[in-house]
């Protein structure tokens, strides 16, 4: 048992950024013999993009489609585990990986942990760190002996290195399998009208703390008077209190051009943070001093969001 296996992920002709981060994590952690697997139809650009200095080889598996198929990925990973006997399997913690990795881990009796943000390997012993209890604690995990360990890695932790034609490319035939969950089409997000979270320089965002649909209007008005774009966390969009176009986070929009982000009544789930934690100036307003949003904020206000909103309105009349 030796070596590292990484399955690349791509969608709609784009290599998933988290794949490059995963490869980088392996290189930086000096995991042995790194092999990167690229599965799909038009995979030439992805093969080149993953050839980062430090990898051993790219395994190209040509199939009839570019779209994700959970059974194809699971059967392929199983086949590669049984032919390469890797000690470590690294995958990006993405929606697609969530959609097949655990099936292989349980079936092949791998060591397994998800959403890992730090790991080490020494003398074949893998240790991984992830969050627990709503990010209030960190958990250090060990794994059963003499089994390959599969980790899915949290995105936006490792800064990706650039490809430079490193490693060699080999081809492997795809496995024979029957697809039981078949891709049909993609549905693009509904047009967001004039709401532009990615383009906004100043975002005022509200979360669960807003408590009721009837309270949303005053924050729309407040954002307006401050000259900010109103954003929100997932539960607010799920409840239909604000359109999905205002949702900041993994399944929503990324605050790409934001310079000032005021988070009101948002505790700071991993998914929300994914869309805004890079912003230079984050002001967190929350009644819970232990809320994880404060770990990412430049300024913190431990207070009721409604009281602060009311006082802010006095500062910014009209």
């Amino acid at each position: 048992m030796s070596g590292t296996l990484i399955i690349a992920e791509h969608r709609q002709g784009e290599l998933c950024q988290a794949t490059l981060e995963t490869i980088t994590s392996a290189i930086k952690s000096h995991t042995p013999d790194i092999r990167v697997v690229v599965i799909g139809k038009q995979i030439e650009p992805f093969i080149e993009a993953v050839r980062i200095e430090g990898i051993l080889e790219v395994i190209a598996i040509r199939t009839s489609s570019n779209d994700f198929d959970p059974d194809l990925y699971a059967v392929t990973l199983t086949m590669l585990i049984n032919s390469y006997h890797p000690e470590l399997i690294l995958l990006p913690h993405t929606v697609n990986t969530i959609g097949y990795a655990a099936a292989v881990a349980a079936d092949q009796r791998l060591g397994f942990a998800t959403d890992v943000f730090d790991f080490s390997i020494s003398n074949g012993i893998v240790t991984a760190i992830r969050s627990g209890y709503g990010q209030k604690v960190n958990v250090e995990l060990g794994f059963p002996e003499n089994r390959p360990v599969c980790l899915t890695l949290r995105p936006n932790i490792w800064k990706p290195l650039q490809a430079n034609k490193a490693g060699i490319v080999i081809e492997i035939h795809p496995p024979v399998y029957s697809a039981r969950c078949r891709h049909e089409t993609y549905l693009e997000p509904k047009s967001s009208g004039d709401i532009d979270i990615p383009g906004a320089a100043f975002i005022l965002s509200i979360g669960r703390g807003v408590a009721d649909e009837k309270n949303v209007e005053e924050f729309l008005e407040l954002a307006d008077s401050l000259g900010a774009t109103l954003g929100c966390s997932r539960p607010i969009a799920d409840n239909g209190w604000l359109p999905k176009a205002r949702q900041v986070g993994q399944s929503g929009k990324t605050a790409s051009n934001c310079k000032l982000y005021i988070a009101m009544g948002i505790s700071g789930s991993v998914q929300h943070l994914a869309g805004m934690k890079h912003v230079e100036n984050i002001v967190a307003i929350n009644t819970d001093r232990e809320a994880s949003i404060f770990n990412y904020a430049r300024y913190g206000i431990v207070a009721d969001m409604f009281e602060i909103a009311e006082e802010l309105r006095n500062q910014f009349p009209e």
Binding site: A113, A128, N138, F294, N295
Partner: peptide
């Protein structure tokens, strides 16, 4: 199981927010 909890600990504060 596929993992064993070795220990739990309090996360290091990533940034110290200036509390107003």
């Amino acid at each position: 199981s596929a993992s064993i909890i070795k220990k739990m600990f309090i996360p290091e504060k990533l940034s110290t927010a200036i509390i107003i």
